[in-house]
């Protein structure tokens, strides 16, 4: 009887905690008005969506699934589908805040992604909503400047020179970041502000592997406030890389065509040699037969 009571109370505790969990889930996720009104400093474009997609697939799919497929991992509270109204009816600022800080099982991504990377993810999430129109921030009449970028490489000091203009006027204090694009990702060269002449210098390791002509694929981003400019350019910076096949010279690991002669010769000579002997013996059976008959004739 005693045990029975125990069971009862255990079941009761379980039920309670389930209810509590539900209550917690139904709790509003508090977002202050200021946070809610926060807007992306960048206009969402295809490139942001693409980068967001990569981050999303690496960090979010495991719980939230493919946006629009409602295939998120079942947990309490449910993570929800980023393609659904649950997400899409929220403001960008609210999503930004929630991704940054997390809650319960939803991890905090503040330390994982820089702000612009978080906006990339939001751009990706928004790409599943055809009705979405990105709100333009109220700039109080200030115009967003359009930047032009010019790149050069100073061989003497191995520096990438980035010059930022707007309407031919050099722009100081613009945040410039530069990357080298590789096969699997991008290498950050540095993040720096332009000087009073509108120029930023970034170190480039001249030993970086380039393509066959010694070119690196450089990506430069310049931002200040809501202004953003990007430039992709291939520049001759490093020594040409002569690509060698990883198995060159190792014919023993290569395709059959490349098999070393000594191996072919010794393999086939051995095998054919041994089989020749075996056939010699099998044909020899005739001699054994003949030897039996020959004598017969002589005796008869």
């Amino acid at each position: 009887m005693n045990y029975f009571k125990y069971y009862k109370s255990i079941i009761l505790i379980c039920l309670c905690s389930l209810v509590m969990a539900n209550v917690q889930a139904q709790n509003e996720w508090e977002v202050t008005t200021e946070q809610d009104k926060n807007l992306s400093p960048f206009m969402f474009d295809d490139e942001m969506v693409l980068e967001g997609k990569i981050s999303y697939e690496n960090s979010c799919t495991s719980c939230h699934g493919m946006p629009g497929q409602a295939d998120y991992t079942p947990m309490a509270p449910p993570p929800g589908d980023p393609g659904s109204n649950q997400f899409q009816l929220q403001n960008d600022g609210a999503l930004f805040h929630k991704i940054k800080l997390g809650r319960g099982a939803m991890p905090k991504f503040e330390d994982v992604f820089a702000d612009d990377e978080t906006w990339n993810i939001i751009a990706y999430i928004r790409s599943f909503n055809e009705n979405y129109k990105q709100p333009i921030p109220d700039l109080g009449g200030v115009e967003i400047p359009k930047y032009d970028l010019k790149l050069a490489f100073d061989e003497n000091v191995d520096k990438l020179v980035v010059k930022v203009f707007s309407k031919e006027i050099p722009q100081p204090e613009v945040e410039v970041s530069a990357f080298v694009k590789g096969t699997f990702g991008k290498l950050l060269l540095g993040k720096i502000q332009t000087n009073e002449l509108g120029i930023a210098y970034l170190d480039v390791d001249p030993k970086l592997p380039g393509d066959a002509e010694g070119k690196l694929h450089i990506m430069v981003k310049a931002t200040k406030g809501y202004a953003l400019a990007k430039l992709n350019q291939k520049m001759k910076i490093v020594q040409p890389t002569i690509r060698k096949s990883a198995i060159e010279g190792r014919h023993i690991w290569s395709t059959d065509k490349m098999a070393p002669i000594w191996l072919k010769v010794s393999f086939f000579i051995t095998i054919f040699g041994v089989w020749a002997v075996l056939f010699f013996i099998v044909f020899g059976f005739r001699n054994i037969k003949k030897a039996g008959r020959e004598d017969d004739v002589m005796i008869e």
């Binding site: 059976f285 030897a291 039996g292 008959r293």
Partner: peptide, 19 residues
């Protein structure tokens, strides 16, 4: 193989076996 136990047959057999 028409074995008659002839000396020559034995010789062939022994040779082949040895090889």
């Amino acid at each position: 193989l028409g074995w008659k136990g002839k000396a020559k047959q034995f010789k062939l057999m022994n040779n082949y076996t040895r090889i």
